[in-house]
Simulated assay, not measured.
Amino acid sequence: MAITAQMVKELREATGAGMMDCKKALTEADGDKDKAVDILREKGLSKAAKKADRIAAEGLVNIEIGPDNALASIVEVNSETDFVAKNEDFKKFVNDVAVMARENDVHNVPELLALQHDEGKSLQDVLNDRIATIGEKLDVRRFERLVTENGVIAGYIHGGGKIGVLVELETTSKDQKVIDLGRDIAMQVAAMNPKYISEADVDQEYLAHEKEVLTQQALNEGKPANIVEKMVVGRLKKELKEVCLLDQVFVKDSELTISKLIANVSKEVNQDIAVKKMVRYEVGEGIEKKEENFAEEVAKQMK
């Protein structure tokens, strides 16, 4: 397969490895980007611990939480430019979408867009009106609605809507300390982006894949085969502490892990607390954005 400059550029941005190393890895992987990332990691050439989706599209993430913290929604609405994402009318539209997603038991975007908006027409028609007015493609990309019968839901928005998180805590306590704990955990999820809540949730395929990569990495470093297995166990354990929420060091207090933080609050309110679910949206993750320079973007807005 022919390796293009764009393929090399994307791999370099995803891993931080050198241009020639990226080209060689892509050639060895026959153009398969994921396989090329693994090759770079095995050779110790990837500066990124794990591959990450490129954040490309503009827009906003918003959350809406009910007054009793038992019902909440999180939505992502995309725009073509950051100018539009900062527009007050666009912000209001995103807020409307979040409220409608919270208040209605719908299960996918088409069902959400079919709902009646306060303007007396479907949300899809309101979206079409905004597209015509703003002159950009807008997209209600995704949403999730959380309902808890035995706990509380808390959330956090970072960067003015670039990242949003909802966390469901299972507990019988409605103490404000529990709500504050939920927000702190949501902030942790926003900052550290854990893949799993605990080691018990870790996908076995993920473990097998990581063990294979770490084993090859250690062998490529010239480590003796008889100690590679022990090294891999240690490295995998360290990696799990990074990808599992409960094992992570709390971003607001390096003396605490998240599990210890939960235990402390649980003791204060005299009730058990467990993280049942976490939902994290980051604007544009996984969407390829066409490259434009700033002057062209400004010129478009002036038309």
Rank of each mutant, 00 (worst) to 15 (best):
K300L: 10
P194I: 05
V167S: 00
V97L: 15
V189G: 01
A48I: 00
Q216I: 10
V99F: 13
G284L: 02
N128S: 03
Y206M: 05
E255M: 04
D203P: 13
A17G: 03
N264K: 08
E296G: 07
Q176N: 09
V126M: 11
D247W: 10
V152F: 06
Q248L: 06
G164M: 04
I163Y: 04
L166K: 01
E42Q: 14
E292I: 04
M100H: 15
T148S: 02
I157D: 04
V265D: 14
M19W: 14
H117I: 03
D201W: 02
M231H: 13
G18Q: 08
K47F: 02
G16N: 01
A98R: 10
V243A: 13
A56W: 00
V233T: 12
V269E: 03
M278Y: 08
E285K: 12
Y206L: 09
A5C: 10
M278H: 07
Q204R: 10
V232Y: 07
V77P: 14
G18I: 09
V249T: 15
T4K: 03
A2G: 11
A5Y: 07
G151Y: 01
L256G: 11
Q216H: 11
E64F: 12
N108G: 08
G66Q: 06
D21K: 11
V147M: 02
A17W: 05
Q301H: 11
Q116L: 07
V167E: 01
A295P: 05
L166D: 01
M19L: 15
D272F: 01
M7R: 05
K23Q: 11
E88Y: 09
V283D: 09
D180R: 00
K137I: 02
E212Y: 12
S259V: 15
K289H: 05
A25M: 14
K24S: 11
K237R: 15
R102P: 01
L138E: 11
E239M: 11
E103N: 10
R183W: 00
A225G: 03
A36V: 07
R54E: 13
V61N: 13
L219N: 09
V140I: 06
K289I: 05
L245G: 13
L40T: 13
F83I: 08
E296M: 06
I163T: 11
E288N: 03
V109F: 01
E297Y: 10
Q204W: 07
D184Y: 01
Q116T: 08
E282F: 03
K195L: 13
A101L: 07
E13I: 06
L240K: 14
E76I: 00
F83V: 12
V233L: 13
G66M: 05
N193E: 13
K300S: 10
V99M: 14
A225S: 10
G59N: 15
N108A: 07
I63W: 00
D105K: 15
K300W: 06
V99R: 13
Y206R: 05
E28Q: 14
G234A: 08
I65F: 06
A274K: 08
D30F: 06
V84L: 14
V269N: 04
I185T: 02
E292M: 07
S79F: 04
V232K: 10
V8I: 12
I63K: 00
L60E: 06
K47T: 01
H209V: 09
N220I: 10
K289Q: 05
V106G: 14
T15C: 02
